[in-house]
């Protein structure tokens, strides 16, 4: 039972390709079986993209392709060459945080911070699609991003705060979000 090696029919082969990440071109020579997650983290040192299961069961590895969130752990890198990819590292504008990042900091929406990059990107895609997203829209959009720390509540509050600000409103956090009732 223990002595049957996996049948390795083929050796990994390296290929070359160009990845357009956060507006920058990267020419990469990489093993053809690598997922986009692995290329981002291991070939491009963009370790802001995290991983929690590598099977599409947690949402942690979410990145944006053409603005739409996908699971980089289930994306064969080869299929995403020459395609605009956005990772959490691309969200800020220079030293200025994206309004979502700003609101996440302000509300305490990142506890351990491990699901945060994926959540931020899913939220960004949502708000670009629906600037007036309500709580239910947010819940629906984030149903594929597990968070074990926050119970999602501070995340909802942060997204709502950012959304309001992105719409140009003068929004402040609700007092009870910070102090309870």
């Amino acid at each position: 039972m223990t002595s049957e090696p996996i049948q390795i029919t083929k050796r990994p082969r390296k290929i070359r390709g160009t990845f357009l990440v956060n507006g920058e071109e990267h020419d990469v020579t990489y093993p053809s079986h690598k997922t986009l997650l692995e290329v981002l983290r291991e070939e491009l040192a963009l370790t802001g993209t995290k991983h929690g299961c590598e099977l599409g069961e947690c949402g942690t590895c979410t990145v944006l392709i053409d603005g739409e969130p996908i699971l980089s752990c289930l994306a064969l890198a080869q299929a995403y060459e020459n395609t605009p990819i956005e990772t959490v590292e691309g969200m800020a504008d220079g030293s200025d945080l994206h309004p979502l990042q700003e609101a996440f900091v302000e509300m305490g929406a990142a506890q351990c911070g491990y699901c945060t990059p994926g959540v931020l990107l899913a939220a960004k895609a949502l708000l670009e699609d629906r600037p007036a997203a309500d709580r239910q829209d947010i819940k629906d959009a984030l149903a594929g991003n597990l968070c074990r720390c926050t119970g999602y509540i501070k995340i909802y509050e942060a997204i709502e705060l950012a959304a309001a600000r992105m719409r140009g409103e003068q929004a402040e956090p609700a007092r009870e979000a910070f102090y309870g009732r």
């Binding site: 983290r41 040192a45 963009l46 370790t47 802001g48 993209t49 995290k50 991983h51 990772t87 959490v88 590292e89 969200m91 800020a92 945080l97 990042q101 996440f104 900091v105 302000e106 305490g108 990142a110 351990c112 911070g113 491990y114 945060t116 990059p117 931020l120 956090p173 910070f178 102090y179």
Partner: peptide, 22 residues
Amino acid sequence: PLPKIDAAAKCLGRTKFADDIV
């Protein structure tokens, strides 16, 4: 209710977790 001192790094994807070490 101040922000955590490490919150920005976590939201920027800059916090290094163990598997991020190379």
